[in-house]
Amino acid sequence: MSLRSPLGRALGAGSAKDGVRHWWMQRLSSIALVPLSIWFVVSLLSLPTLDHVTVTAWMGQSWTALLLILFVLVATWHSQLGVRVVAEDYIHGAGAKTLVLIALTFAHALVAAAGVFAVLKVAFGGAS
């Protein structure tokens, strides 16, 4: 049992003076995802077929490639912001929490880079 005063414990290490940016970026990315997700679903569904040739041809168009890259980046960024909060909510050990946050950040960076790379590869004609 700690002999620290209850107020001392409640004050803890003080305010991090941080959090507004995270909160605002999460809202901003979710706003951006509304039109991007609608565009993505509607565009895919309006393709005549969903075979490899049709979809890669669609991805090769400049506007499609541009919007797909934006979609991948914004979606992974939004996911990174959200999943970080979930980890902070439920993982309480400082060591485990840090490790999980590092792993999550790396995983999201990998997904984002892979997504962008895939779109660029198709768009610039290297797809096979």
Binding site: S15, A16, D18, G19, W23, V85, E88
Partner: peptide, 14 residues
């Protein structure tokens, strides 16, 4: 406001 700007003190509210 400075004192509340913290990922835990305030932003744990979901």
């Amino acid at each position: 406001l400075d004192e509340l700007e913290d990922p835990f003190r305030l932003y744990r509210c979901h």
